[in-house]
Design a protein around this nucleic acid. Sequence first.
DNA 1: CAGATGACAGATATTGAAATCTGTCATCTG
DNA 2: CAGATGACAGATTTCAATATCTGTCATCTG
Lengths: 193, 193
Amino acid sequence: MATGTLTTERILEATEEMLRRHGAAKATVVDVARALGVSHGTVYRHFRTKAELREAVTKRWLDRTSQALSGIVSGTEEPEAKLRHWLAGLFAAKQHKAGDDPELFATYTVLTGENSGVVDRHIADLTGQLTAIIQEGVTRGEFTAPDPASTSRAVFDATNRFHDPAYAGEWSKPGIEPAFTAVVDLVLRGLRR
Amino acid sequence: MATGTLTTERILEATEEMLRRHGAAKATVVDVARALGVSHGTVYRHFRTKAELREAVTKRWLDRTSQALSGIVSGTEEPEAKLRHWLAGLFAAKQHKAGDDPELFATYTVLTGENSGVVDRHIADLTGQLTAIIQEGVTRGEFTAPDPASTSRAVFDATNRFHDPAYAGEWSKPGIEPAFTAVVDLVLRGLRR
DNA sequence: CAGATGACAGATATTGAAATCTGTCATCTG
DNA sequence: CAGATGACAGATTTCAATATCTGTCATCTG
């Protein structure tokens, strides 16, 4: 299965595949090496430890969500619509990841649990996007926020139930949509001038 | 150790003691019976299963929190101060339970995880108290809330990070107090007329 | 000689036999 | 005879032996 040169990228792809196939607990470095047709020692030339390899995979996975949302931030909507869409987009993305392939989602939940540093940086990314939206709203005179950065963190925290994987089990229950809307409405009322 | 008659109450106390001593995983019905100086068969005359016994202990534990907060609801403060104090009281109570005896808190976190029905009823209790506060605010013309019940749930959800045991690890980190204040401020701005 | 290998030591996970626990119930006792 | 007991079957947990994995490194190969 040694197609082309062995790049970091190919190792990451193979690792994702093994995680998808075997789950977080049983995906081993030996498995990854076998899938790539190399010895496991070779994988260790690209990643110092298994933890580092898993961290890189986790980062890739989280970055896909950040990227999808960044389009909304740079869009041309009104700040309020933008904020609504961004929050709804984050919720919908998580809801789909959790609902479409629960096993894979559970796998990544384990990985994010192991890599709090990556998660913290991901959250910093997301709240950074939120800050940009809120800052724009303040500049346009539509939002009030003495400190957009801490307000964006408050908005992120207030909507926790709709993006933290710990609550994934509730995202498919009836009544979750109105609950989401109620929180977003409350938060938006709090932001308006 | 057979002091007095064997009441349901005494079994619950002994069970709490065993949970405190041995943790959720190792507290057995045999232990509880031994502590009470009776055979384990006797415990089963009071509780049909071990799960039922643990559920009763869990309920008692959660009810203590609800009771402590209910005093604030029936107090004489202004609605806004009342809501602030209630949310701060809930947060402080959880923070102390988690910080003062982390092992016992971990034990009860396992128990609440096992007894979602009890937890749901506990949450219904708490949001009921919140509804009373918000209703009072609406009646006095200080709050806006088309549907106080769903608004109270939104307030509860928005402050999740400060009362859900899943976040207990963050309650002792620096910066948690301002984060709490930021969310409460945002929520209160959203509630005001 | 840059990059890959695989044998190896120590750490971690798996497995299956033995020990303990849960829940029942026929029997006992005050 | 109301309430307690403890032997018992089946379920669950523990524990130690065994197998597998991680990470290193001296050696190999194109």
